[in-house]
Each structure stands twice: as C-alpha cells, then as structure tokens.
Write a protein that binds this DNA or RNA. Structure first.
Lengths: 198, 198
DNA sequence: GTGCAAACTTGCATCGACTGCAAGAATCGG
DNA sequence: CCGATTCTTGCAGTCGATGCAAGTTTGCAC
C-alpha cells in the first residue's frame, strides 16, 4: 500500500542522512560535524541534504515529520467517554511503548541530545509546536477555545512535560527502566495534583 | 551599590541593542532584519553586537540573563512550611506582577514571538534551561534527586507550562486580562489535577 | 517500449550569522 | 597623571542555508 521505487528511495535517503548525522555527532560532537560531512557519509551531495532536512539539527534529531499528526489522530480516536486527561494518558503510554521497542536509535538520540544543549533547544521547539496542535484538538473535544480558555493549552503542555520528564528519567536509568511505566507514573502524579513527596 | 560609568554604559548598550532588534523585527519581520541593521540602529559596530548577545534571536527576546537565578533564589526564600507547589505558585504570581507593570516591552515581545516561530523555539529553549535549574532547587528542597525521582523535573516543567499558557492567554486577551490572575487560575487547575471542564 | 511530464539531484553563486585575532580607545584605581 | 584592565572595532574566514537552472531519474499513458 505504500511503495513505488521513488518513495522507497526517498525514505532510504532520509534515513541514511539521519543516521549519518546522529552517529557522527555521537562520535565527534555537534560542532565538529558539518553538513558536508553528513552528506558525504550518506553519499549524497551537500545540496541534497537540504531537500530532506531544513537544518543540521533536524537531521541529527531525525524526528518523524508526522509524529504530531499521528498523536492528534490517536487522541481523537479514543473512546468518547474518556476524559481528556485519560485519553492523553493512554496516548502517551502507547507512544512510550512504541519508542521503547527501539533499543538503539532512541537511546542514542537521547544521549546526544543530553550532551548538546542546541539539540535540546531544537527538541523543545518541536515539542512546543506539537503541543500547539494538540491543544487545538483538545479544544475541539471539550468545546473550549484554545488560547482563550486555559484548559486545552495547559493540558497539552502538561502532556509534553510528562513525556520530557519520562524521557529524561529513562536516560538517567541508562535505559533499564520501563519507559511506559515512567510515563504512567508521571501522569499519576499529575492527576493527583502534584502532592508533595513523602 | 551598582554604578560605575562602565557598567552603566554596558547596560545602556545592551538595552539599546535589544530595543533596536525588537522594534525592527516588529516592523519588518525577523528575516528582513540583519545583525548589521540592529547594530546600525543601536549605533555600535556589528562586531560589538556579538559582545552582548550570542545570536540574533537572543537580542530580539532580550531576556534578563539572571532571571533564572532570581527565580531560584525567590523559590528558596519562601517559608519552609509551604509545599513546593505553594512556593512555586507564589513565585510565579510575583513574576507575573512584575511583568505586568511593563505595558510596552512585554506586550511587544509577546506579539513578535507569536508572529515568529523561530523566536518561540528559542524561548522554549530558554524556558527549558530555566526549568532544569529550577528542578535542581526543588530537588534540594524535597530531598529528591532530580533526573531520578520524577517530582522535581515534573514540577519545574509544570511551572513553565503554567507561565507559558498564561502568557499566551494574556496575548490572546490583547493584554486586557490580569496576568497574575491568569497565572493563578492555571495553578488552580493544576493542583486540582486538571479536572475536565464543565 | 516509447515518450512526455513530474519529481529529484546536483553544482554554482550568494547571503548572512557567527568567531578568533589583534590593535586601538575608553575607563578604572591609585 | 599613569599603568592595568576592559570594551570596541575592523578584518578575515568558516559554515549554514537558499534560489536558480541545468541534468538525471522515475512514473504513467498509450
């Protein structure tokens, strides 16, 4: 249901550029890797690099361009009798399970992000954009207006924080912890209103 | 307790560069404003620009470089019988009151940020860095370890979301709403565990 | 399979952000 | 007033990023 040769080649090139970027940066650090280096290792011209990624940082992160649409779709597909919080918690858990199946690229990405503040910044930006879109979806589901009523933006932002916090703890555990469990624990604290520990 | 001529000039130059950057971008958009333009209007050389801001975006945002340390200090100065949530809520309220006294620059900043995704990204990065530091402070206050225990990172992140959401709504109200009230409302929803509206 | 149209790759030229360096100007402290 | 420190500036250079105009590959109809 997907393939033509053209499409498969594009996917392969994109993935080759991302892996080249990620591994090079893991080896030598972001500042010591140029776009030319990345293009070289992926065996395309430097100019072609920019047909696939709009900047160097994006290639290193290599995020799925329709992760955000998928997240929104998954949220809207949840049963109508769930509260928005329940629905988002379930979506987050499913995302976590998905990510946890990748035992190589995601850990490497997170290590690199942790070592390079510029990438953390870029990631925060991507999350922010995703949260904006998600807030719209929450608003349509609750009948609120995003930007005017606090609930949609706040909930979408909180969902992002839960995921970021859990990814950070996953890294801190050297990927021995269960990411879905971490995500669920974070949501547990949130729905309890962040009671002081102990 | 502050002044020498040298220090006052530095403050003035920094502020001149920031206002030049902010107003130019408000007039013509981020892409149509070069560092040279900003330096021209502020009457310094382009090279000097980079003695004050590490990149163009930072000059447009013009954020207080010790806002984050101040926030941490304010948090740690709260009475010891407050819960972390109560303390952070109070700190956020105080920050909001402070910001609301500025009826020109903050509204202009927020309008420009809203119009330029790149600035939103940069702002998200700055917030993220602030949250990291704040999480450390929360951890020392609760005896948790940031990064291992979820509470500090989660709470710091939530504080950021509350502020971002409120700034967004302040903008959406065309700055007619009370920022401290918006901040307090956001925290009210958070401590209640984000109950579904209506 | 032939051939046209659309999509993709590439080189080239260019702009502008950003950095290191070294010389000169302003300020500070006594 | 003088030496030490700090700040400003110009210059040269690197690299990220973009528009444009070939040239090449793939898709599709006939």
């Amino acid at each position: 249901m997907t393939t033509g040769l053209r499409e498969r080649k594009k996917l392969a090139t994109r993935s080759a550029l991302h892996e080249a970027a990620l591994r090079l940066v893991a080896e030598r650090g972001l500042a010591s890797v140029s776009v030319d280096d990345i293009a070289d290792r992926a065996e395309v011209s430097p100019r072609t690099f920019f047909n696939y990624f709009s900047c160097k940082d994006d290639a290193v992160l290599g995020l799925d361009p329709d992760a955000s649409p998928n997240q929104v779709a998954a949220f809207l597909a949840r049963p109508a009798d769930e509260t928005p919080v329940q629905a988002l918690r379930a979506v987050a858990r499913a995302q976590a399970e998905e990510m946890a199946t990748d035992t190589e690229l995601w850990p490497l990405r997170l290590k690199v992000i942790d070592a390079e503040p510029a990438l953390l910044a870029r990631l925060a930006a991507v999350f922010g954009e995703g949260e904006r879109v998600l807030a719209e979806a929450v608003a349509t589901r609750t009948g609120n207006r995003a930007g005017v009523d606090p609930y949609p933006t706040l909930l979408a932002g909180v969902a992002g924080v839960a995921m970021r916090t859990s990814l950070h703890r996953w890294l801190a555990s050297d990927f021995t912890a269960s990411l879905p469990a971490l995500v669920d624990e974070a949501w547990g604290l949130l729905v309890a209103g962040l009671p002081a520990p102990r």
